[in-house]
Design a protein around this nucleic acid. Structure first.
Lengths: 217, 217
DNA sequence: CCACCTTTGTGAAAGTATTCACAAACCAAC
DNA sequence: GTTGGTTTGTGAATACTTTCACAAAGGTGG
């Protein structure tokens, strides 16, 4: 059944789950692959193939049970439990994340925050006390942190990521605009705002270049 | 030369550019595809193929000129100019973005910020006055906003995105955890923190499932 | 029970992206 | 100039993803 699952499939599973939860709130009982596809920006065949990688969850002629498919996807994505998250770097983005109640609501509980800035250490930020970076190892172990968020300036991001990996954190979400080189038993995902904006810039620039050459003709 | 360029290629071009700028700061003159690949998490063949989609910029036996390849990539990505950005939603993430000096430094200039919250309207946030959402159309046109950032709660994100598209904004960066359905002459990229965390959750959960089944044997 | 409509699950086909592998080009040194 | 060591640019081969298309299954109503 489940061999290697493409990253793109996992992303879509999250989207499907999000829609299923919405549908659940409206007390809908069944949903077709076609409808799920519509709002997730996928095709119905893609929805069915994605799900079929894990098993068969639908009823032919009816579609998928909203409730039970939600549960199945939560199980697959590992969302039936709460993950303990450690945040490194309590700057602007770090602070925003600490205040982002959605993370908690979705099962990601920030249990520790770290910074090097003496002015921040000891302060409470959205109910959490900022610890000195030097206590990272001790606190990560004590609290059982499982996911690390790197929200430091790029210069120190690689070093911080390495420390996190060394202390046994298995997954890192990286907000710093740097490639992290970590042992490959640590999973890394990057949120790179400038990269995304540059992608948009490329598309806009290309559109203009096309426009310009069209006007020339 | 340049047909349809894969999204993955554009992303890598940004990474290459980032590395080239670093190398430029150390006064390096030439760099090989192999070295560029190393730090961008790609292969040397991939670097060469990516670049070859746009032309031939290297010198055989020497590699690529750091300075001139930087310029070429900036040109391709549309980074030789400053883009005017409008931010909708001055909550925690929106505020963090307004304070994120890197955006400015990279050619993305936030020239307007909008919110519906009367308590925020008129206030200065990092040197920018927050405008009422009802003035979106007028101000976007006046300021010539080209890229919109949606950092609102998910319930209103779709509506805001539609307004932005209608007023002529050609590209949107979406921080709300919702799929935006916009006319396809508007480019959209999403930054979805919960989605990324769920991806990590999947990997951690899968790793544990494997561990558990191994111990069982 | 049968005819008809709907929707799944899935091999096979088509389409994309990545990797391989090597000729062509460049440089340096002698 | 010729030899030898590098490195690009690129067709061909491989690997991966998505789409197609249809048999099998379930529901409904007579």
């Amino acid at each position: 059944m489940s061999g290697r699952i493409p990253d793109s499939t996992v992303r879509r599973l999250s989207l499907y789950l999000r829609m299923l939860r919405e549908l659940g709130r409206t007390n809908r009982e069944f949903v077709s692959s076609h409808e799920l596809a519509g709002r997730a920006g996928a095709t119905s065949a893609q929805v069915r193939k994605d799900l079929s990688l894990f098993g068969s969850f639908g009823k032919r002629g009816r579609g998928y049970s909203v409730g039970s498919l939600s549960n199945t996807l939560e199980e697959i994505l590992g969302l039936v439990r709460t993950w303990k998250v450690g945040l490194v770097g309590v700057g602007k983005i770090g602070t925003a994340l600490l205040g982002y109640r959605d993370l908690d609501a979705r099962g990601f509980d920030i249990v520790a925050a770290f910074d090097v800035d003496a002015a921040k250490i000891g302060k409470q930020v959205f109910g959490l006390t900022v610890s000195p970076l030097s206590d990272l190892e001790r606190i990560v172990k004590e609290c059982g942190v499982e996911i690390g968020i790197v929200a430091t300036p790029p210069e120190v991001a690689a070093e911080v990521a390495k420390s996190l990996g060394d202390v046994g954190v298995g997954a890192i979400l990286n907000f710093a605009p740097t490639e992290l080189q970590v042992s490959d038993c640590v999973a890394v995902r990057a949120v790179d705002i400038v990269l995304e904006l540059e992608g948009l810039s490329y598309l806009l620039a290309t559109a203009r270049r096309l426009d310009a050459s069209k006007t020339d003709e």
